[in-house]
Amino acid sequence: MTTPLLRPSPLLRLGTRGSKLALTQAGLVRDALAAAMPALSAPGAIEIVAIKTTGDAIQDRPLSEAGGKGLFVKEIEEALLTRRIDAAVHSMKDMPTAQPPGLAIAAFLPREDARDVLIAGDVRRIADLRQGAVVGTSALRRRAQLLHRRPDLQIVNLRGNVETRLAKRAASTVEATLLALAGLKRLGMAHVGTPVPEDEMLPAVGQGAVCIECREDDARTRGWLAAIDHAPTATCVAAEHAMLAVLDGSCRTPIAGHAILTPDGGLHLRGLIVKPDGSEAIATERRGPAGDAEAMGRDAGHELKRRGGPGFLST
């Protein structure tokens, strides 16, 4: 009788959502860790664990009606806290502004292009969509910015992963939709639409960034993740999230923000709040030393909050 070979237990278990994009991003983290840490380069050293989240299960209504931010990370964070996984790979734009006690964001991959993409057949610009065109999106940020520029558009809820939304657009369920360019690039699908200038559609806070979360007391995992952490991305996201935290932002509020590092070693942050019906938009920006990223973000958030006044984001 032959004794079956026992597979060695993985040294690191990476949790992620089960969509094609999420698994692709987890694969990028696995490959980066394997390249940076010899201990993790052996076959089977890193296991990717797909976890279904509440956000994946809800397909019949906007996430803003179901609880907002955190719906794509709750079950994954629970798996971290119960030690079913050692680290979690998230799209940063899905992350709330604070982590549960005992968890921390320990690393970022280099950020991809943060812009949105318009997918509308031969139409390349929002301004060129026909009068009254039907546009599908579940993001309040996109909806509000679209209506601010084009109040004639009909905005309908469009949920699902990248492939599902593209299929609905191709089937003429909607005439146009918008997706994050970063995700399309990671899936090798950047050709399906046209990037929208940030002057027309400011990205979501954290868009294009992949973060890795782990337990605060897990020194071994934190050491491995430190080897792949992309500090420039961490700095830019810190500014954006500091602004978002002041605004108490979630999926229920149309808030946009994007920070970049400038050639002179500084940081440029742009922030925007929009009324849900698109009737009013308030923008601000900050420039300063990259070391002041969080302070700049907080200052920008306080300005937007002051200028918007009570109830701006809920009217």
Rank of each mutant, 00 (worst) to 15 (best):
M1F: 11
T3P: 04
L6R: 14
P10M: 02
L12D: 07
S19E: 08
A35W: 10
L40R: 13
P43W: 07
P43Q: 05
G44Y: 13
G44F: 11
K52T: 15
K52Q: 14
A57I: 06
D60G: 03
S64W: 09
G68H: 07
G68C: 06
K69G: 14
V73P: 00
E75C: 08
L81K: 12
D86H: 14
V89L: 05
V89D: 09
M92D: 14
K93M: 09
D94Q: 04
A98I: 06
Q99G: 02
Q99E: 15
G102Y: 10
P110I: 03
P110E: 05
A114R: 01
V123N: 02
R125H: 14
R130L: 11
T137V: 02
S138A: 15
A139E: 14
R142D: 13
L147E: 10
L153M: 09
I155A: 10
L158H: 03
G160P: 00
E163F: 04
A171F: 05
E175W: 13
L179V: 02
G188K: 13
V192Q: 12
T194D: 07
P195V: 04
E198G: 00
E198Y: 06
D199L: 11
P203A: 09
C211T: 07
I212T: 12
E213Y: 09
D218F: 07
R220P: 01
A227F: 00
I228E: 11
T235F: 03
A238N: 05
A238H: 02
A239D: 01
A242L: 00
L247E: 00
S250T: 14
R252M: 12
P254Y: 01
G257D: 04
G257W: 07
T262M: 03
G266S: 07
H268W: 12
L269V: 06
L272S: 06
P276V: 11
G278F: 11
E280M: 09
I282S: 07
E285Q: 15
R286C: 08
G288A: 02
P289Y: 12
E294Q: 15
R298K: 14
R307S: 08
G311P: 08
G311E: 04
T315K: 03
T315I: 05
